[in-house]
Amino acid sequence: MTDAAALTARLDPTDLPYELRPFPARGARRTELDNSFAAFLTEESAALDECRYQDWLDLLDERFIYQLPVPLLREDPSLPRHSDRALLFEATKQVLAMKLGRVGLQYAWSDRPSGVMRHFLGAVRVFSAAEPDTWRVDCNVLVTWSRGRDEAVVVTAGRQDLVHCSGRGGYRLLRRRVLLDAEVATHEQLSVIF
Protein backbone atom coordinates (compact mmCIF):
# COMPACT_ATOMS: atom_id res chain seq x y z
CA MET A 1 0.00 0.00 0.00
CA THR A 2 1.24 3.50 -0.73
CA ASP A 3 1.61 5.94 2.09
CA ALA A 4 -1.37 7.90 0.86
CA ALA A 5 -3.54 4.80 0.66
CA ALA A 6 -2.43 3.73 4.12
CA LEU A 7 -3.38 7.10 5.42
CA THR A 8 -6.80 7.04 3.76
CA ALA A 9 -7.43 3.56 5.08
CA ARG A 10 -6.50 4.73 8.54
CA LEU A 11 -8.67 7.76 8.25
CA ASP A 12 -11.73 5.78 7.15
CA PRO A 13 -14.00 6.79 10.00
CA THR A 14 -15.77 3.44 10.14
CA ASP A 15 -12.49 1.80 11.21
CA LEU A 16 -12.35 3.94 14.28
CA PRO A 17 -14.12 3.35 17.57
CA TYR A 18 -17.05 5.69 18.03
CA GLU A 19 -15.24 7.99 20.42
CA LEU A 20 -12.84 8.96 17.65
CA ARG A 21 -15.47 9.57 14.97
CA PRO A 22 -17.28 12.87 14.54
CA PHE A 23 -20.77 12.80 15.94
CA PRO A 24 -23.17 11.87 13.10
CA ALA A 25 -24.94 14.81 11.49
CA ARG A 26 -28.70 15.04 11.34
CA GLY A 27 -30.14 13.63 8.12
CA ALA A 28 -33.73 14.01 6.96
CA ARG A 29 -36.31 14.69 9.64
CA ARG A 30 -38.43 11.53 10.24
CA THR A 31 -41.48 12.68 12.17
CA GLU A 32 -43.30 9.39 11.57
CA LEU A 33 -40.72 7.67 13.83
CA ASP A 34 -40.88 10.16 16.72
CA ASN A 35 -43.41 8.23 18.78
CA SER A 36 -41.74 4.85 18.60
CA PHE A 37 -38.29 6.24 19.49
CA ALA A 38 -39.79 8.37 22.27
CA ALA A 39 -41.35 5.21 23.70
CA PHE A 40 -37.98 3.45 23.59
CA LEU A 41 -36.16 6.35 25.30
CA THR A 42 -38.87 6.58 27.96
CA GLU A 43 -38.37 2.93 28.85
CA GLU A 44 -34.63 3.36 28.74
CA SER A 45 -34.70 6.29 31.22
CA ALA A 46 -37.17 4.44 33.43
CA ALA A 47 -34.67 1.58 33.75
CA LEU A 48 -32.10 4.05 35.13
CA ASP A 49 -34.58 5.85 37.39
CA GLU A 50 -35.87 2.57 38.79
CA CYS A 51 -32.33 1.24 39.32
CA ARG A 52 -32.84 -1.69 36.94
CA TYR A 53 -29.24 -1.32 35.86
CA GLN A 54 -28.83 -4.60 34.04
CA ASP A 55 -31.94 -3.81 31.98
CA TRP A 56 -30.38 -0.48 31.13
CA LEU A 57 -26.97 -1.93 30.23
CA ASP A 58 -28.73 -4.45 27.96
CA LEU A 59 -29.92 -1.53 25.85
CA LEU A 60 -26.35 -0.44 25.11
CA ASP A 61 -24.46 -1.79 22.12
CA GLU A 62 -21.02 -3.22 22.94
CA ARG A 63 -19.49 -0.28 21.03
CA PHE A 64 -21.49 2.26 23.05
CA ILE A 65 -19.74 5.50 23.96
CA TYR A 66 -21.09 8.18 26.26
CA GLN A 67 -19.67 11.71 26.19
CA LEU A 68 -20.15 15.04 27.94
CA PRO A 69 -18.31 17.68 25.92
CA VAL A 70 -16.91 20.68 27.78
CA PRO A 71 -19.37 23.62 27.50
CA LEU A 72 -17.83 26.76 26.01
CA LEU A 73 -19.03 30.24 26.87
CA ARG A 74 -18.10 32.35 23.85
CA GLU A 75 -18.85 35.85 22.69
CA ASP A 76 -20.13 34.87 19.24
CA PRO A 77 -23.47 33.01 19.37
CA SER A 78 -22.88 31.48 15.94
CA LEU A 79 -19.93 29.40 17.24
CA PRO A 80 -20.50 25.96 18.82
CA ARG A 81 -21.38 26.01 22.52
CA HIS A 82 -19.53 22.78 23.28
CA SER A 83 -16.00 21.59 22.56
CA ASP A 84 -15.51 18.98 19.86
CA ARG A 85 -12.36 17.77 21.64
CA ALA A 86 -12.53 18.33 25.38
CA LEU A 87 -14.84 16.26 27.57
CA LEU A 88 -16.09 16.58 31.12
CA PHE A 89 -16.62 12.86 31.06
CA GLU A 90 -16.43 9.91 28.73
CA ALA A 91 -17.51 6.32 29.32
CA THR A 92 -17.58 3.02 27.50
CA LYS A 93 -20.22 0.41 28.33
CA GLN A 94 -17.67 -1.25 30.61
CA VAL A 95 -17.03 1.99 32.54
CA LEU A 96 -20.78 2.52 32.97
CA ALA A 97 -21.18 -1.07 34.15
CA MET A 98 -18.54 -0.35 36.80
CA LYS A 99 -20.33 2.81 37.84
CA LEU A 100 -23.68 1.05 38.14
CA GLY A 101 -22.03 -1.94 39.83
CA ARG A 102 -20.94 0.33 42.66
CA VAL A 103 -24.34 0.12 44.35
CA GLY A 104 -23.44 -3.43 45.31
CA LEU A 105 -20.20 -2.38 46.98
CA GLN A 106 -20.23 -1.46 50.62
CA TYR A 107 -17.56 1.22 50.31
CA ALA A 108 -18.68 3.10 47.21
CA TRP A 109 -19.12 6.21 49.30
CA SER A 110 -20.69 8.51 46.73
CA ASP A 111 -23.31 5.86 45.90
CA ARG A 112 -24.18 5.03 49.49
CA PRO A 113 -26.63 6.20 50.55
CA SER A 114 -27.84 6.40 46.98
CA GLY A 115 -29.78 9.29 45.55
CA VAL A 116 -33.03 9.21 43.64
CA MET A 117 -32.74 10.14 40.00
CA ARG A 118 -35.55 11.14 37.63
CA HIS A 119 -35.35 11.84 33.92
CA PHE A 120 -37.82 14.13 32.19
CA LEU A 121 -37.59 13.86 28.42
CA GLY A 122 -39.06 16.30 25.97
CA ALA A 123 -39.13 17.16 22.27
CA VAL A 124 -37.92 13.79 21.01
CA ARG A 125 -37.10 14.17 17.32
CA VAL A 126 -35.82 11.50 14.94
CA PHE A 127 -33.49 12.11 12.01
CA SER A 128 -31.92 9.79 9.47
CA ALA A 129 -28.23 9.01 9.97
CA ALA A 130 -25.60 7.95 7.46
CA GLU A 131 -24.86 4.49 8.90
CA PRO A 132 -27.35 1.78 7.85
CA ASP A 133 -30.13 0.99 10.36
CA THR A 134 -29.14 3.89 12.62
CA TRP A 135 -31.07 6.96 13.61
CA ARG A 136 -30.09 10.14 15.27
CA VAL A 137 -32.50 11.04 18.03
CA ASP A 138 -32.31 14.44 19.70
CA CYS A 139 -34.24 15.48 22.77
CA ASN A 140 -34.26 17.80 25.77
CA VAL A 141 -33.62 16.35 29.18
CA LEU A 142 -34.18 17.63 32.66
CA VAL A 143 -32.70 15.36 35.30
CA THR A 144 -33.22 15.65 39.02
CA TRP A 145 -31.27 13.86 41.70
CA SER A 146 -31.88 14.07 45.38
CA ARG A 147 -30.38 12.59 48.42
CA GLY A 148 -30.64 13.87 51.94
CA ARG A 149 -31.67 17.40 52.75
CA ASP A 150 -29.12 19.67 51.10
CA GLU A 151 -28.49 17.56 48.08
CA ALA A 152 -31.03 18.36 45.39
CA VAL A 153 -29.84 18.67 41.85
CA VAL A 154 -31.65 19.91 38.77
CA VAL A 155 -29.76 19.84 35.53
CA THR A 156 -30.88 20.56 31.99
CA ALA A 157 -29.21 19.47 28.77
CA GLY A 158 -29.70 18.72 25.13
CA ARG A 159 -29.18 15.05 24.40
CA GLN A 160 -28.14 13.50 21.11
CA ASP A 161 -28.30 9.76 20.62
CA LEU A 162 -27.30 7.45 17.83
CA VAL A 163 -29.69 4.52 18.00
CA HIS A 164 -29.50 1.25 16.12
CA CYS A 165 -32.81 -0.22 15.08
CA SER A 166 -32.97 -3.19 12.78
CA GLY A 167 -36.68 -2.81 12.16
CA ARG A 168 -37.55 -5.95 14.13
CA GLY A 169 -38.30 -3.90 17.20
CA GLY A 170 -34.89 -4.09 18.86
CA TYR A 171 -33.30 -0.78 19.74
CA ARG A 172 -29.70 -0.37 20.91
CA LEU A 173 -27.88 2.80 21.88
CA LEU A 174 -24.63 3.31 19.97
CA ARG A 175 -23.71 6.77 21.14
CA ARG A 176 -24.93 9.39 23.53
CA ARG A 177 -23.75 12.97 23.67
CA VAL A 178 -24.94 15.26 26.44
CA LEU A 179 -24.76 19.01 25.89
CA LEU A 180 -25.04 20.69 29.27
CA ASP A 181 -26.71 24.10 29.36
CA ALA A 182 -24.64 25.51 32.24
CA GLU A 183 -21.03 26.37 31.55
CA VAL A 184 -19.78 25.12 34.92
CA ALA A 185 -21.63 22.27 36.60
CA THR A 186 -21.38 21.10 40.19
CA HIS A 187 -19.86 17.73 41.02
CA GLU A 188 -23.35 16.50 41.93
CA GLN A 189 -24.77 17.50 38.56
CA LEU A 190 -21.89 15.71 36.92
CA SER A 191 -22.50 12.51 38.82
CA VAL A 192 -25.84 12.04 37.07
CA ILE A 193 -26.17 9.64 34.14
CA PHE A 194 -28.21 11.44 31.51
Binding site: E19, L20, L68, L87, L88, F89, E90, A91, T92, V95, M98, K99, A108, W109, S110, A185, H187, L190, S191, I193
Partner: peptide, 25 residues
Protein backbone atom coordinates in the same frame (compact mmCIF):
# COMPACT_ATOMS: atom_id res chain seq x y z
CA UNK B 1 -6.43 10.86 22.84
CA UNK B 2 -6.08 7.73 24.97
CA UNK B 3 -4.24 9.59 27.72
CA UNK B 4 -7.01 12.19 27.71
CA UNK B 5 -9.75 9.54 27.68
CA UNK B 6 -8.25 7.83 30.73
CA UNK B 7 -8.24 11.11 32.61
CA UNK B 8 -11.80 11.91 31.44
CA UNK B 9 -13.10 8.48 32.46
CA UNK B 10 -11.51 8.26 35.89
CA UNK B 11 -10.49 11.53 37.41
CA UNK B 12 -12.11 14.35 35.44
CA UNK B 13 -14.74 16.65 36.87
CA UNK B 14 -17.27 13.95 35.92
CA UNK B 15 -15.05 10.96 36.72
CA UNK B 16 -17.65 8.77 38.28
CA UNK B 17 -15.30 5.95 39.20
CA UNK B 18 -12.72 7.81 41.23
CA UNK B 19 -13.08 11.54 41.57
CA UNK B 20 -16.66 11.27 42.90
CA UNK B 21 -15.53 9.52 46.06
CA UNK B 22 -13.11 12.37 46.75
CA UNK B 23 -15.86 14.94 46.17
CA UNK B 24 -18.11 12.89 48.42
CA UNK B 25 -15.62 13.05 51.26
Amino acid sequence: RRSYAFQARSQSAGGILFEMDDFEN
